[in-house]
Amino acid sequence: TLFEALYDYEARTEDDLSFHKGEKFQILNSSEGDWWEARSLTTGETGYIPSIYLAPV
């Protein structure tokens, strides 16, 4: 399942991933609670993103 960003997000740590509204992600690991490891389909970068900023596509 792909997810789309509902809002912009600016990374706060080196493990976080910055993204823009409308960016799409492949989720790599969603077992860490509210922060999911994801790969951006726009940039190819991976990192942790807040799941509350996402909606399934």
Rank of each mutant, 00 (worst) to 15 (best):
T1L: 13
T1A: 12
T1E: 11
L2R: 05
L2C: 08
F3N: 01
F3A: 04
F3S: 02
E4Y: 15
E4G: 04
E4H: 08
A5M: 01
A5Y: 01
A5T: 03
L6N: 04
L6I: 10
L6H: 03
L6S: 04
Y7P: 00
Y7W: 13
Y7M: 11
D8P: 07
D8Q: 05
D8F: 05
Y9K: 04
Y9G: 04
Y9H: 06
E10C: 12
A11M: 04
R12S: 12
R12I: 11
R12P: 09
R12H: 10
T13C: 15
T13V: 08
E14Y: 10
E14T: 13
E14H: 13
E14K: 13
E14W: 09
D15C: 15
D15N: 15
D15L: 14
D15F: 15
D15R: 15
D16C: 14
D16T: 15
L17T: 03
L17V: 06
L17A: 02
L17W: 06
L17D: 00
L17N: 01
S18K: 05
S18N: 06
S18L: 02
F19N: 00
H20F: 14
H20L: 12
H20A: 11
K21F: 05
G22M: 03
G22K: 04
E23V: 03
E23P: 00
E23S: 05
E23N: 06
E23M: 06
K24L: 15
K24G: 03
K24F: 11
K24V: 14
F25R: 00
Q26C: 13
Q26I: 15
Q26P: 00
Q26T: 11
Q26Y: 15
I27K: 04
L28T: 06
L28Y: 06
N29I: 06
N29D: 12
N29V: 07
N29S: 11
S30W: 14
S31T: 12
S31N: 11
S31E: 10
E32W: 11
E32K: 15
G33V: 12
G33D: 12
G33L: 11
G33R: 12
G33E: 11
G33Q: 13
G33C: 10
D34A: 11
D34G: 12
D34P: 09
W35K: 12
W36S: 01
W36G: 00
W36L: 06
W36T: 02
W36D: 00
E37K: 13
E37N: 08
A38V: 15
A38F: 03
R39A: 05
R39M: 12
R39Q: 08
S40M: 05
L41I: 08
T42Y: 10
T42S: 12
T42N: 09
T43I: 01
T43W: 02
T43Y: 02
T43P: 00
G44Y: 06
G44R: 05
G44V: 01
G44E: 05
E45Q: 15
T46D: 03
T46F: 07
T46Y: 08
T46G: 03
T46I: 14
T46M: 09
T46Q: 10
G47L: 05
I49F: 02
P50I: 06
P50M: 14
S51T: 07
S51W: 13
Y53C: 08
Y53E: 01
L54F: 10
L54N: 00
L54C: 04
A55W: 10
A55H: 10
P56L: 09
P56G: 05
P56Y: 07
P56E: 08
V57L: 11
V57R: 03
